[in-house]
Amino acid sequence: MTTASGGRVVALVPAAGRGVRLGEQTPKAFVTLAGTSMMRLSVDGLLASGVVDHVVVVAPAELIGAAVALLPAGVQVVEGGAERIDSVRAGIAAAPDADIYLVHDAARALTPTSLIARVVAELRSGRKAVVPALEVTDTIKTVDILGGVTGTPKRSELRGIQTPQGFDAALMRRAYEAASADDPATDDAGLVERLGERVRTIPGDPLAFKITTQLDLTLARALTAATTKPATNTADEGLG
């Protein structure tokens, strides 16, 4: 069964990374915000969007049992690989019946459901590759190996790319078939671009930021605490 005409939507959630830059004892996807793992929050967002038919989480081999225990019934958990590209390949292999793939970072745990729905809507309208993007606010420099500035790209032509990234399933399979095992691409859209296919950007959302550093984690926890804080009973104010 699919969510709407246009085929079956499968979301792949790579969650096998260690998250060294985060500096936590637990692998990043298992780090919690207000008591809930980032992995679970990301999966809940995908399911709550109403546009995803199936979710495949790709976890470290030794933590598959722990992942299953943390996730809703029906979410498939498979073993990941040493690199992200290996984990996404494992997710593709686990869901060969997909018509549309979404690839969503577990570390973008606060991504609004509306953004997920917009990506799928673009794909259902006929786009083959869609990624959320935010305008870059900092000036960006290119540098050489010694740190010397070699150029200043036009900020108006730069975008910070988020997830979920969405693809026609046949196109994504083709992109991964063409990629080598040690491909240095940092996102799935990069593999599709190499095939000469056009990747469409849509406006992203600041809440879809990637939780990578301790500062990111502090912000995410503050935002989560603010949204889960019990409402104040104004009738009781001033009593005591």
Rank of each mutant, 00 (worst) to 15 (best):
M1H: 15
T2S: 12
T2Q: 10
S5V: 07
G7Q: 06
A15Y: 03
A15C: 07
A16P: 04
R18S: 13
Q25V: 11
T26G: 01
P27G: 07
A29Q: 06
L33R: 08
T36G: 02
T36R: 15
M38Y: 03
L41A: 06
V43F: 02
V43Q: 01
V43D: 01
D44E: 14
L46F: 04
H54G: 09
V58M: 07
V58I: 15
P60R: 09
E62W: 10
I64H: 07
G65N: 02
A69M: 03
P72Q: 05
V75D: 04
Q76R: 12
V77D: 02
V78C: 02
G81N: 01
A82L: 13
E83R: 14
E83T: 08
R84Q: 12
R84N: 12
I85S: 01
I85P: 00
A94K: 04
A95N: 06
P96H: 09
D99I: 03
D99A: 15
Y101A: 01
V103T: 13
V103S: 05
D105N: 15
A107F: 00
R108L: 05
L110H: 07
L110K: 05
L110W: 11
P112M: 10
P112N: 08
T113N: 06
S114K: 13
S114L: 10
I116D: 01
A117L: 08
R118T: 14
R118M: 09
V119E: 06
V120E: 09
E122V: 02
E122A: 12
L123S: 05
S125L: 08
R127H: 14
V131L: 14
V131I: 15
A133C: 06
V136E: 12
T142R: 06
D144T: 07
L146H: 12
G147C: 07
T150S: 09
P153V: 08
R155I: 11
S156K: 15
S156H: 09
L158I: 09
L158K: 07
L158S: 10
R159V: 11
G160L: 14
T163H: 02
P164Q: 07
G166Y: 02
M172A: 12
M172D: 04
R173M: 04
E177G: 15
A179I: 00
A179C: 04
D182S: 12
D183Q: 01
A185Y: 00
A185H: 03
D188A: 12
E193F: 08
T201C: 03
I202N: 05
P203D: 10
P203N: 08
G204A: 02
A208G: 15
F209H: 04
T213P: 03
D216L: 06
L219A: 13
A222P: 00
L223M: 14
A225F: 09
A231R: 13
A231F: 06
A235G: 15
G240K: 09
G240H: 09
